[in-house]
Design a protein around this nucleic acid. Structure first.
Lengths: 349, 349
DNA sequence: TTGAAAGCGGTACCAA
DNA sequence: TTGGTACCGCTTTCAA
């Protein structure tokens, strides 16, 4: 039926072992032999059997990328950044890794399920992107899963969430708190005093950190936070819309809105426009992430600029162990805001 | 090291074969035995070895989803729709399929590369979403790849692109032409006569079909297409922005713009706003897809509404072989589906 | 209903 | 530099 390595070996008049060596390119093979093998591969249209290879080598070329919401461009950028950085070590035409993008939808159960699925596949690496859920039981469950994965040789990368102790994971964190602070400082600088805040879901690290930054800025400026001016919701457009309507209902005198991320900001803008308010003439809006499409919808955005795609790519590179120099504190970015690896030093490389 | 099926067998005092049967649930096993096995699995924290399983069974539980641009929410919606529909037949806790979202970036080479990678993994199914490239050589190459995949037992689904002969593929197509026509008809109905058209990339099925629909509508209304009022570009925001600026430069008197998809429409809106034009007071904008976030940015959008997520889910279900009966708006005709967004009435194939 | 054992297609160690 | 060959961990007849 399907062509196997043995078929190729027969055709090239060599042993299966030799074919394997040629294909993996990690062993010396005479040029002439190699030619013959490659020719046979080509003629037979041979395609390596991934599962067999993974079984024998005890590792696969799959890389899992967990995202909270695949319909959110933010995660799309992250995913494609990682994807573009996980070329295998062999450099061969066929020696590539396959990125498996898993959509958790922000659900703790699905997060664990996917982790198990990736463990089952003996994934080469797993990249967890976006904020983490803060529920203690879940955090413990994830930590234990990650530990097992690491034990089995899977490289673990955390991109945008707090480090996990003893998981041998590379952690790349964003300065959510600082970002949140700057965003609000920016609005304060424009003279705004009544600022609504559309926060992310409760129990999420990013939600809390950004909100803390916001409050920090208010406090530093001596502005008292009006009660009811913070509304929580999921990180999507609908939630941003709903939350903003809610804010307007509570206090129609606000002059600025901070959105916990750009997708949310889009929803906020929609609600404001619908209410007959103009942006930024009547109300300023500031979003958090660095999504290209929101630049003009969210004028204040430019004050905070996280090169997330680059950060994700870098995390992927670190996970694959082909990082040149240590990440160090800040050199990842040239922008206004810093992205810093939590430990500052890549671990487990 | 890692726990194997044999370990579980030993602990449960049964043979490996029995454990396998319990796990797969496709064989009669005494209730008591099953309990014992499940208990052992639990105690040992056993996780099936995917590659080994795939090798022995000659098929894996991976489902590949090819998308043109993972940062485009359109594909995110498609991907998550497929993902939510590919639960395995077993229904077991561990019997799930894993969706592999592959980002081709619209590149022919990467499309083929991913197809090979999935072939190597012995994927259970492959779903190709979005418009296809029309280059003859590439079409042939893809067709041949798909045929091989099908031969090897991989189910192939085409979602949003033309059927491929002899590939044994399920094809789900959208009425791009009809949609394009209606969009323009809508604008014509509003009284517009000078309509700019921001088209997708050349050599793409969706680009051509939608554009044909546009021209059809113009012709039917007796409106002559002004030269230079069609500009091509990729399906992203930046292209929409650039193309619209270009259009404005060529003819500042246009009163409406059709964008070949929603992401492009967002860019178009940005360019118009930047030019000091108001939407829809000065210029109407119509996008094509059915993305939730663009509803207000593109007021005319509601004239065309394709239930894409549902369609993708349906395609996934069909591929997995558990399709029941056709529902309204979607019809199954000889393995091919036609989704007609605007009227909701299925068209013949 | 359960067990024994022969593969599935590669990989990598040991020799030659 | 190349060949021989034990596995890798699971599935699936074939018997019992």
């Amino acid at each position: 039926m399907t062509v196997t390595l043995a078929d190729v070996a027969a055709r090239a008049q060599v042993s299966p072992a030799t074919v394997s060596r040629v294909l993996n390119g990690n062993y010396p093979v005479a040029a002439a032999t190699r030619e013959r093998v490659l020719k046979a591969v080509d003629e037979l249209d041979y395609v390596l059997n991934g599962p067999a290879s993974a079984l024998a080598a005890a590792t696969s070329d799959l890389v899992g990328v967990l995202v909270n919401d695949i319909a959110d461009p933010f995660f799309g950028i992250m995913a494609s950044a990682v994807q573009s950085e996980i070329v295998g070590p062999g450099g061969r035409a066929g020696g590539e890794r396959l990125a498996v993008v898993c959509n958790t939808g922000g659900s703790p159960e699905r997060e664990l399920t996917y982790l198990t699925l990736l463990q089952r596949q003996r994934a080469a690496a797993v990249v967890l992107t976006g904020g983490a859920i803060e529920d203690a039981a879940h955090v413990a469950a994830v930590a234990s899963k990650l530990r097992r994965l690491a034990e089995a040789g899977t490289r673990v990368v955390l991109c945008g969430r707090p480090p996990v102790p003893d998981a041998g994971a590379v952690a790349l964190t964003f300065d959510n708190r600082g970002g949140g602070r700057e965003l609000t400082e920016h609005l304060l600088g424009l003279g705004h005093r009544r600022i609504g805040y559309v926060a992310g879901p409760e129990e999420r690290t990013t939600t809390r950190d950004r909100l803390e930054g916001h409050r920090e800025a208010l406090a530093a400026a001596g502005v008292e936070e009006s009660p009811g001016l913070v509304v929580h919701g999921s990180y999507d457009r609908a939630a941003g819309y709903a939350a903003t309507r809610e804010l307007l209902g509570r206090d129609s005198s606000l002059t600025a809105v901070v959105a916990a991320n750009d997708t949310v900001a889009l929803g906020a803008c929609a609600a404001l426009r619908e209410a007959g308010l103009r942006i930024p003439e009547d109300v300023s809006v500031a979003g958090f992430d660095d999504l290209p499409f929101s630049v003009d919808a969210v004028p204040a955005l430019t004050t905070v600029r996280l090169p997330l795609a680059e950060a994700a790519a870098r995390a992927g590179r670190i996970a694959m162990g082909r990082e040149a120099a240590p990440v160090g504190g800040v050199d990842v970015v040239g922008g206004e805001l810093m992205v810093r690896g939590s430990t500052g030093v890549p671990r487990g490389v």
